[in-house]
């Protein structure tokens, strides 16, 4: 015991700089990432900011019951899942297709140019992106309406931003516009890892380029796709609120409100912290559940795990 203890102190002294360099940041993470979890207690109290923790009234699951009986909750959950699933499908298929297209380009200089352009929207803020999308879709001189009018597909401009049933599509399309180029990076890296001898052999066998894509490129990036899908499923209901906040307006509120936006508007906006926290907890718990479920299924299929 004595020996072990002294070796512990010895080690502590030996790596004192390592402790000094990490522990302050660990404390930091504790404050800003773990202390908010302590804030979850608010959901079980009738939280009043002026009172201390011990003076709060405990109400059990009262706010959760209220949340689940709220008509708006169902609507918000529907919006969240709809936009999430649409984003998941579009956000996977389109970057994969674009990565394959890029990979098939023969001029390297042109490929480099296209890639650089395609990363640009990723780096601008959602405020800029939302401003651009609103401008492009606007009824006075918006590019999309002008194009559709000049092609005689429509006779008068469509009020894109005022139609609730178009909102999910607009959010999904904006996301595709902003992130497709960026999301190809990982697939292009995976494609680059496929052995050239496979393509060589396929060519000898007389496979066309399309057949090569189907039988070599796609199977070659299969595991990358699966891993990324698992990660995305974990984030399925935490799609945030940024896009919806910036692109939405009162006219489309029934379609634009997500869980986080709901917590922001009805929790913070009206000072109902306990109710808002209950929404946040619901969100986090479902996310973790989804992540573990997805990981479990993934483990069964591939004998690999990401956690």
């Amino acid at each position: 015991m004595n020996v072990r203890k002294s070796s512990f102190w010895h080690n502590l002294k030996q790596s004192k700089y390592l402790y000094l360099m990490s522990l302050p940041f660990v404390a930091w993470v504790f404050v800003f990432s773990y202390l908010p979890l302590w804030g979850w207690t608010m959901a079980f109290q009738k939280y009043k900011p002026a009172k201390s923790f011990f003076e709060q009234d405990w109400v059990g699951f009262y706010y959760f019951k209220e949340l689940f009986h709220d008509d708006m909750f169902i609507q918000v959950l529907r919006n969240t899942i709809a936009m999430s699933v649409m984003g998941l499908i579009a956000g996977f298929t389109i970057p994969i297709i674009f990565a394959i297209l890029l990979n098939e380009l023969r001029q390297q200089l042109f490929k480099r140019f296209v890639q650089t352009i395609s990363y640009l929207p990723h780096f601008v803020s959602w405020i800029v992106a939302a401003g651009i999308v609103t401008k492009m879709l606007s009824t006075d001189n918006g590019a999309v309406n002008e194009l559709l009018l000049s092609l005689h597909i429509i006779n008068e401009p469509i009020q894109f931003m005022a139609k609730g049933n178009l909102f999910w599509g607009i959010v999904t399309a904006s996301d595709v516009w902003k992130e497709t180029g960026w999301n190809t990076i990982i697939y292009l890296a995976a494609i680059a890892g496929i052995g050239p001898e496979l393509y060589e052999a396929a060519r000898v066998d007389g496979a066309s380029r399309l057949q090569q894509v189907w039988h070599i490129t796609l199977p070659g990036i299969r595991s990358t796709i699966i891993i990324l899908i698992i990660i995305s499923i974990g984030h399925l209901i935490s799609i945030g609120f940024e896009k919806q906040f910036l692109l939405g307006n009162n006219l489309v509120r029934d379609y634009s409100q997500t869980l986080d936006l709901y917590a922001l508007n009805y929790g913070l906006g009206t000072g109902r912290y306990s109710f808002g926290t209950a929404i946040n907890i619901f969100n986090s718990v479902v996310s973790v559940f989804l992540l573990f479920t997805a990981n479990g299924i993934f483990k069964k299929i591939t004998k690999e795990s990401i956690i």
């Binding site: 908010p36 986080d260 913070l268 912290y273 929404i279 986090s284």
Partner: peptide, 18 residues
Amino acid sequence: FLALTMYVSGGLIPFYVL
């Protein structure tokens, strides 16, 4: 300790109160 922060977050309201 660090890795866990990538999966669990307290959410908007608790963070605001903090």
